[in-house]
Design a protein around this nucleic acid. Sequence first.
DNA 1: CAAGATTGAACCCTCAATCTTA
DNA 2: TAAGATTGAGGGTTCAATCTTG
Lengths: 147, 147
Amino acid sequence: MTVQPERLSAREQTLWHAIKTLSEQALIRVAADIEASAGISGSDFSVLSRIEELGNGELSQHALGRALGWQRSRLSHQLTRMEKRQLLTRESHSGTPAVWVRLSIHGLHALAEARPAHATAVRAHILRHVPPDHEVVFLELADRLSR
Amino acid sequence: MTVQPERLSAREQTLWHAIKTLSEQALIRVAADIEASAGISGSDFSVLSRIEELGNGELSQHALGRALGWQRSRLSHQLTRMEKRQLLTRESHSGTPAVWVRLSIHGLHALAEARPAHATAVRAHILRHVPPDHEVVFLELADRLSR
DNA sequence: CAAGATTGAACCCTCAATCTTA
DNA sequence: TAAGATTGAGGGTTCAATCTTG
């Protein structure tokens, strides 16, 4: 076993810094464009689009949490804020612990406004900068990180 | 001009999702290891290590902010929390608007504990998964995103 | 008890307004 | 006025403790 030094080398620093920059910028830029176009946050968009995709307008909170890969409490706090802003409603069907989440008219409207902005932003800020022969590099690293 | 569809294609979705996963996981994992080893957050570590590197224990708040690339108020809030936890002290030398930040004994100790954990975490979670001939791909994307 | 969900505290971050000192 | 810094509000996230219902 070779002992590794306690500090990163210049080469390691440079690569780590690049990945940190990439990570910080990528999500922020897309979220900012969604916010500007439809007045909702990136998290709001994730929730709204998942409910529409998987549940066709209504979905159990549990299924939603699993699809997003979020913690229970994170989703609960998020839905509380969204309910307050009238983007959706929550209701628990008689005598079960499960909660159903339903998009409101306002939520559907915001989603419709945000969707094209989302696609445009992802293309303009991210995809445009990744040449086809580099795509596999990102797919591989994400795959290793998600295990 | 070709009109782009309002939704991402399956191929676009896959790549965007990979970059999102990478972005969400990379920083979180390193921060979690720092937290576990020294009881400080990733932001705390960034602040402490910058002060030691650039200022040798003491640095002006302004210089620190520029080095980190953070907003004024973000740094102010962060330093307020760190001061409360006794990681550092702030003092303004007579009659100037500038503020000097100085590491406390406790801060130096936390930094010393966190540094090897940081290097190990970056290597184990990130660098290990990037073969040398792929490094340039990340450097290029980060460069484009930081402009 | 177990599973689904909520709550409160603490931390993190941004924006806009404000304070301070030259 | 301009530059450095702070503040308060509001959204976002995690953790641990708690509530609820079968």
